[in-house]
Amino acid sequence: MKYEKRDRVLSFIAGLIIFIILMFPLYWMIVTALKTQVEIFEVPTPLWPRKLTLKPFLDQFAESSTTLQGFKNSFIISVSSALIATILAIPAAYGLARFQFHSKKLLILFFLMTQMLPSTLILTPLYIMFSKAKLLNSFIAPILADATLGIPFSVIILRTYFLSVPKELDEAARIDGCSPMQSFFRVMMPLAKPGVIVAAVFSFVYAWGDLIYGITFITDPNKRPITSNIYNYVQQYQTIWNSTMAFGIIAIFPVVLIFIFMQKYIVSGLTNGAVKA
């Protein structure tokens, strides 16, 4: 018994040390955003701000700054693309979970393969396609492209949710006179709600984190998503690290919120989406 207690204490200490090491880069981002430039380049640089300053953050919210515009652009792009991805993935996942047909396996493989494709592969053709359709420099281009990141993941993850709902519930609804559509909306959908949330959240996070589509399809500074904005900001203000880090904190804000309030869903998404497939 005593042995076990010592084991737990040692495990706790090891866990704490690992936690500190893994979290250090994030701590460093926050601390840097609160330091003055002078302190940042001091040798050795202090591990916490001696002269706390909010100026880097205030600069990002200044009228001349495009940070908030970028945030808004990213929000529009990510929400739209998550909506497209989720709305298309729900019926597809249901169809692939509940019905038997001979091309079913092929379709599941198709989604698995598309999930693994590199964005660079389809980037040039998409660019040509969007340029012909006069969609460059509009939100539509990154929205359409970002949805392709969310759809395969969402189909795969939602299928496992639909598979876990007992078939009998579906059948009972049919016997009670529901059409396939009605039983889908009234019985299956409410039960698969956690899966729908995971799918939507991941599609949003994928789109929010996208850089390559954003920098390629949108060159108008007022329409850039926030990732492309911060990338261009650094090109321009190379070593103004406190402002860059403040910008970074603003850019990760929605993701951190999602992380804090939906951790349970994210963990299930990560494990179900990758292993089970």
């Binding site: 249901y94 019905f99 038997q100 001979h102 189909v155």
Partner: peptide, 27 residues
């Protein structure tokens, strides 16, 4: 039932064919 299943999955499949499948071939 097979037709229903295919019908349900078709919108997502078509979307991925247009924005991933076609670009892959055209690349």
């Amino acid at each position: 039932a097979g037709k229903m299943g295919l019908l349900f999955s078709l919108p997502a499949v078509i979307y991925m064919l247009v924005f991933v499948g076609y670009p892959t071939i055209s690349n």
